[in-house]
Measured scan of single mutants.
Amino acid sequence: MTYKAILNGKTLKGETTTEAVDAATAEKVFKQYANDNGVDGEWTYDDATKTFTVTE
Rank of each mutant, 00 (worst) to 15 (best):
E27P: 00
T18V: 14
D22K: 02
G38F: 07
N35M: 15
L12E: 06
V39F: 14
Q32F: 05
M1F: 15
A34N: 01
D36T: 08
G9Q: 04
A23T: 08
A5I: 15
V29Y: 15
N37H: 15
M1W: 13
Y45A: 01
A5D: 04
Q32N: 08
T51Q: 04
D22P: 00
D46H: 06
K10C: 12
Y45V: 01
D47N: 09
W43R: 00
F30K: 00
D22A: 03
K31F: 06
I6M: 05
V29P: 01
W43I: 04
D46R: 02
V29R: 08
T18H: 07
E15W: 14
T17C: 12
E56C: 07
D46N: 10
L12N: 07
W43S: 01
Q32S: 09
G9K: 03
N8F: 10
I6H: 05
A26V: 01
T16W: 15
T11L: 12
G14C: 15
K10S: 11
G41T: 02
D46W: 03
Y3M: 02
N37W: 14
N35E: 14
D36P: 00
L7P: 00
W43A: 01
T18E: 03
N37L: 15
Y33C: 09
F30V: 02
T44Q: 07
T44C: 09
K4I: 11
A23M: 12
F52C: 00
K10T: 12
F52T: 01
E42C: 11
T55N: 10
T25H: 13
G38C: 08
A23G: 04
T17S: 12
V39M: 11
Y3W: 05
K13D: 04
D46M: 04
T16H: 12
V21A: 13
T51L: 04
T44I: 09
D40R: 13
E19R: 13
L7N: 02
D40S: 13
A20E: 04
T49K: 06
W43H: 00
A48L: 11
K28C: 10
A5G: 06
Y3D: 05
D40C: 12
A23E: 07
A34W: 06
N35K: 15
F30A: 01
I6E: 05
Q32M: 10
T18R: 04
A34S: 04
L12P: 04
K10A: 12
N37P: 01
D46L: 03
G41I: 03
K28Q: 12
G41F: 05
V54Q: 02
G41Q: 02
E19C: 14
M1D: 13
T51W: 01
K28R: 12
A5E: 04
D36A: 13
D47V: 09
V21K: 13
Y3F: 13
K4N: 06
N8S: 07
K50H: 12
A26T: 01
T2N: 06
L12G: 07
A5S: 04
T53M: 09
G14L: 15
A34M: 08
T18L: 10
A48T: 12
T44G: 06
L7A: 03
L12I: 14
D47S: 11
T16E: 05
D36R: 08
T16P: 02
T44S: 11
G38D: 07
Q32G: 06
E27F: 15
N37M: 15
N8H: 09
D22H: 04
V54D: 01
V21N: 11
E56L: 06
F30D: 00
V54E: 01
T17N: 05
K50C: 06
T25V: 07
F30M: 02
T44K: 08
K4T: 13
T16N: 04
E56V: 07
K10V: 14
N37C: 13
E15S: 11
A5T: 04
T17H: 09
E19M: 14
V21Q: 12
T44V: 11
F30H: 01
I6P: 03
K31W: 07
G14Q: 12
Y45G: 01
K31Q: 08
V29D: 05
M1Y: 15
Q32K: 14
T49I: 06
K28F: 09
F52E: 00
D40M: 13
Q32R: 10
K31Y: 05
E27L: 15
T55W: 10
T53P: 01
N8L: 13
T49P: 00
A48V: 12
T55D: 07
T55F: 08
A20H: 02
V29Q: 07
T16F: 15
A26E: 01
K50P: 02
E15P: 03
F52I: 00
G41K: 02
A34L: 07
K4E: 04
Y33W: 15
A24C: 14
L12M: 14
Y3T: 01
K4D: 04
W43T: 01
A48F: 09
G14M: 15
K13M: 08
D22M: 03
Q32E: 09
A5V: 15
E27R: 06
T2I: 14
E15T: 13
I6D: 04
E56P: 06
T49H: 05
A5C: 15
T55V: 09
T44A: 10
D46E: 07
K10D: 07
K10Q: 12
Y3G: 02
E27V: 07
L12D: 05
D47H: 11
A24V: 10
A48Y: 10
N37Q: 12
A5W: 12
N8A: 07
V21D: 11
A23S: 10
M1P: 08
K13V: 09
Q32Y: 05
K31L: 08
E56A: 07
W43Y: 02
D47A: 13
T44R: 07
E42P: 05
T53E: 07
N37R: 14
G9R: 02
E15R: 05
D36H: 07
K10Y: 11
M1T: 15
T11K: 11
A5L: 15
K31E: 04
A20N: 03
G38H: 09
N37A: 12
G9V: 09
F52A: 01
K4G: 04
Y3R: 00
L7C: 06
D47C: 08
V21G: 10
